[in-house]
Simulated scan of single mutants.
Amino acid sequence: MAANATTLTEKMRAALRISSTSKKITEEINDCIAACKADLANDGVNRIDEKDGLIIRAVTLYCKAEFGYNNNAEKFRNSYDTLKMRLSMSQEYNTPIVSETDTVGGESGG
């Protein structure tokens, strides 16, 4: 990994103030990230870009709530839920992603 390239896992490790790079802790962080992405998608957030500041913030809040960071799990969960709601209502984040190869067509009556 290049010196300036930071993965979402490493960002969460820093946000949670976890210096250990053990495989088990890394797996737990990655599981938490995956759970957050699934939760966002489940509530209608279609654009989950790991480089997007609001998505990074949502994942950070989610992980801090799950890890019970500074004994403020409820505070972080409430902040996450508020951000998730705003993302799910934002056209920028809730519009389905359509690739150039997708075809747009209506149902045929018949």
Rank of each mutant, 00 (worst) to 15 (best):
residue 47 R to L: 12
residue 31 D to A: 15
residue 56 I to Y: 01
residue 4 N to F: 10
residue 102 D to L: 08
residue 2 A to D: 12
residue 24 K to N: 13
residue 42 N to F: 10
residue 83 L to Q: 08
residue 106 G to W: 07
residue 108 S to A: 15
residue 99 S to V: 11
residue 56 I to F: 03
residue 70 N to H: 01
residue 35 A to G: 12
residue 98 V to Q: 09
residue 105 G to S: 14
residue 94 N to L: 01
residue 33 I to D: 06
residue 6 T to N: 02
residue 45 V to L: 01
residue 87 L to C: 03
residue 46 N to T: 03
residue 88 S to R: 14
residue 94 N to A: 02
residue 12 M to I: 13
residue 67 F to D: 05
residue 71 N to K: 13
residue 92 E to P: 00
residue 57 R to V: 05
residue 39 D to V: 00
residue 55 I to P: 08
residue 110 G to Q: 15
residue 7 T to I: 04
residue 107 E to N: 13
residue 28 E to F: 03
residue 25 I to A: 02
residue 14 A to D: 14
residue 57 R to S: 13
residue 110 G to I: 15
residue 18 I to K: 05
residue 54 L to Y: 10
residue 100 E to Y: 03
residue 75 K to W: 04
residue 67 F to P: 01
residue 106 G to K: 13
residue 34 A to Y: 12
residue 6 T to C: 01
residue 7 T to P: 03
residue 6 T to P: 00
residue 34 A to D: 15
residue 21 T to P: 00
residue 95 T to A: 04
residue 19 S to E: 14
residue 8 L to P: 00
residue 52 D to K: 02
residue 76 F to V: 03
residue 103 T to P: 04
residue 18 I to T: 00
residue 74 E to L: 11
residue 70 N to L: 02
residue 41 A to K: 15
residue 107 E to W: 11
residue 53 G to S: 13
residue 9 T to Y: 06
residue 84 K to C: 11
residue 61 L to P: 04
residue 68 G to W: 02
residue 30 N to I: 00
residue 11 K to V: 07
residue 98 V to S: 08
residue 78 N to R: 14
residue 56 I to T: 11
residue 4 N to H: 11
residue 82 T to D: 10
residue 40 L to T: 08
residue 12 M to H: 04
residue 71 N to F: 06
residue 100 E to A: 10
residue 100 E to R: 07
residue 79 S to M: 07
residue 93 Y to H: 07
